Amino acid sequence: STVKVRLGHLEVTLHNVSEEDVRELRELWKNGADEEDLRRWLEEWKK
């Protein structure tokens, strides 16, 4: 499914993403990950 995730002022649209992935991303964000960390996660996730 396609999910729009809003993290601060960063809005990311993920395609074919699982609930688990979204949860993981939100956890990262809650734990103080900055945009760099999130971008890195997204790069990994896209592979």
Rank of each mutant, 00 (worst) to 15 (best):
Glu27Trp: 03
Leu10Lys: 10
Arg6His: 10
Glu44Arg: 12
Trp29Gly: 11
Ser1Ala: 15
His15Arg: 07
Asp34Lys: 12
Leu38Trp: 04
Trp41Pro: 00
Gly32Thr: 03
Glu35Leu: 12
Leu42Ser: 01
Arg39Lys: 13
Val5Lys: 01
His15Met: 08
Glu27Lys: 07
Leu25Thr: 00
Ser1Asn: 14
Ser1Glu: 11
Val17Gln: 01
Lys30Met: 14
Glu27Gln: 06
Arg26Gly: 10
Asp37Gln: 14
Trp41Arg: 01
Leu28Ala: 03
Val12Ala: 04
Leu25Asp: 00
Val3Ile: 14
Val17Ser: 02
Val3Asn: 02
Arg26Glu: 15
Asp21Cys: 08
Asp34Arg: 10
Gly32Arg: 02
Val22Tyr: 14
Glu24Phe: 13
Asp37Ser: 12
Lys47Phe: 05
Glu20Thr: 10
Gly8Met: 02
Glu24His: 10
Trp29Pro: 02
Arg40Met: 10
Leu38Cys: 02
His9Gln: 14
Arg6Gly: 03
Asp34His: 12
Arg40Ala: 12
Leu42Met: 07
Glu27Thr: 04
Leu38Val: 06
Leu14Asn: 00
Glu19Asn: 08
Asn16Cys: 05
Lys30Ser: 13
Glu27Phe: 03
Thr13Asp: 04
Glu35Val: 11
Lys46Met: 15
Arg39Asp: 03
Lys4Arg: 13
Asn16His: 11
Trp41Gly: 00
Glu11Pro: 01
Leu28Trp: 07
Ala33Ser: 06
Glu43Pro: 01
Glu24Cys: 09
Gly32Phe: 04
Thr2Phe: 06
His15Trp: 04
Asp37Val: 14
Val12Met: 09
Glu27Ala: 05
Val3Thr: 04
Glu27Asp: 12
Val5Glu: 01
Leu42Ala: 02
Lys47Tyr: 04
Leu7Lys: 03
Asp34Met: 09
Arg39Pro: 01
Ala33Phe: 07
Asn31Val: 05
His9Pro: 11
Lys47Gly: 11
Leu38Ile: 09
Arg39Val: 12
Leu14Met: 07
Asn31Met: 06
Glu24Val: 15
Lys4Met: 04
Lys4Val: 13
Gly8Lys: 05
Lys4Pro: 02
Leu7Gln: 02
Glu20Gln: 14
Arg6Tyr: 06
Leu38Ser: 00
Glu44His: 12
Glu20Asn: 10
Glu44Phe: 06
Thr13Leu: 09
Val3Trp: 01
Leu7His: 02
Asp34Gly: 14
Glu20Val: 09
Trp45His: 13
His15Gly: 03
Leu10Tyr: 13
Arg26Phe: 14
Glu44Asp: 14
Asn31Trp: 03
His9Val: 12
Asn16Ala: 06
Arg23Cys: 09
Leu38Asn: 00
Gly8Leu: 02
Val22Pro: 00
Ser1Gly: 11
Lys30Ile: 15
Glu24Lys: 15
Glu36Met: 11
Glu19Ser: 10
Arg40His: 09
Asn16Asp: 08
Glu20Ala: 12
Asn31Arg: 07
Leu38Tyr: 04
Glu11Cys: 12
Val5Arg: 00
Ser18Cys: 04
His9Thr: 12
His15Asp: 07
Leu14Lys: 00
Leu14Ile: 12
Arg6Lys: 13
Lys4Asn: 08
Val3Leu: 06
Ser18Tyr: 04
Gly8His: 05
Trp45Ala: 07
Lys47Met: 06
Leu7Arg: 02
Val12Thr: 04
Glu43Ser: 05
